[in-house]
Design a protein around this nucleic acid. Structure first.
Lengths: 134, 134
DNA sequence: TTGTACTGTAATAAAAAATATTACAATTAA
DNA sequence: TTAATTGTAATATTTTTTATTACAGTACAA
C-alpha cells in the first residue's frame, strides 16, 4: 500500500472539522506532502462524490454531505487499487498445475478478505472518526 | 502491498501438494520470479517456523507441520510489513491540531482492520486452500 | 476590468521501493 | 571429490511513488 488512504483520511478529517472551505495548499501544509499530490487526491474524491470544490478566488473544498453519511469504507473504496493482499508482477508458469490455477484462487481469497475489511470499515463513519480528535 | 504474500502462498501451496522436498529453483520456475527472491522468502518462512530445509545435494524445502495446522493468517503474519491501509512517507505537520494526532488514530484504525483481516484469514488453513486445486 | 487567489491538470524529475542478477561460501549425497 | 543444493551479500535494473515546475481556467473584489 502507498500513502493514498492516509492522505485521503487526512483530507476528509480536515474538511470535517473545518467550518469553511479549505484550500489545497492549506491541506498540503497540514499533511506535509506536495500540493499537487493533494490536488490529485482531491480530484479523485470529487469524482467519487465525497467532496465538492469551488473554483476561483476564495475557492476551496468541502464535504459533499454530512460526515455521518460518509463511511470509512467509501473513503477506502475511493482510493483502492489492486489487491489488498498484493500481487506479483509476473504471471506464474502456466505449465505448472499449481501455477496455472493459483492466481484465480488468490484473487478469490483477496475478494473475501477485502470484503471483511470493508465490513469492518463500514462500521465507522467520518463523524465518528473525527470525534476521536480533541 | 508488494508480491510477497502471493509468493509465500505459492511456495506453501507447492510444498503442500508435493510429496518430497522441493528446490528453490523449481519453485522459482513455477512462480516465475527470481530464485534469489524465492530463497529470501523461504528463509523468512523458515524463521517463522512454517517450513524446514535440508542443505546439500538433494536438499530442498518442506512444510514444518501438517497443512491443516497452518492457517493462512500465520502465512500473512510471516510476510506482513507496515500498515495494511498504507502509510504516508512524511510526518504530518505537528503544528496543526489534526496533523498532530492523526497518525495515532490512523494506526488504531489500521490495527482494527488488520485484526478483522486476520480473523477472516484464520478461518482457512493451507490444506483447505490447496483442496481448491484440481 | 484588472489583479489576485484559487482550482485543475499535464509534463517531467527525483527519490524510494521492488525485483533481478551475479557471485560465491557452506553443506551433503552419491 | 564432484555435483547439486542452501544461504546470503553486493550490486544493478526496473517500477512505483512522490515532488516539482508550469500554466490555463475561474471567480471574487477592488
Amino acid at each position: 500500500m502507498n500513502g493514498r488512504f492516509p492522505i485521503a483520511m487526512h483530507i476528509m478529517t480536515l474538511l470535517c472539522t473545518a467550518d469553511d472551505l479549505l484550500s489545497s495548499d492549506y491541506m498540503a501544509g497540514s499533511i506535509n506532502v506536495n500540493p499537487v499530490l493533494v490536488r490529485k487526491e482531491l480530484s479523485n474524491l470529487i469524482k467519487h462524490q465525497l467532496i465538492i470544490s469551488r473554483e476561483g478566488k476564495n475557492g476551496g473544498y468541502t464535504l459533499s454531505k454530512p460526515a455521518t453519511d460518509i463511511s470509512l469504507a467509501s473513503i477506502y473504496q475511493a482510493v483502492k487499487q489492486g489487491n489488498i493482499l498484493g500481487q506479483a508482477k509476473n504471471q506464474p508458469n502456466p505449465a505448472c498445475p499449481i501455477g496455472k490455477q493459483i492466481n484465480d484462487h488468490l484473487k478469490n481469497l483477496d475478494n473475501e478478505i477485502e470484503q471483511a475489511m470493508l465490513n469492518k470499515l463500514g462500521t465507522t463513519n467520518l463523524a465518528g472518526f473525527c470525534k476521536k480528535f480533541d
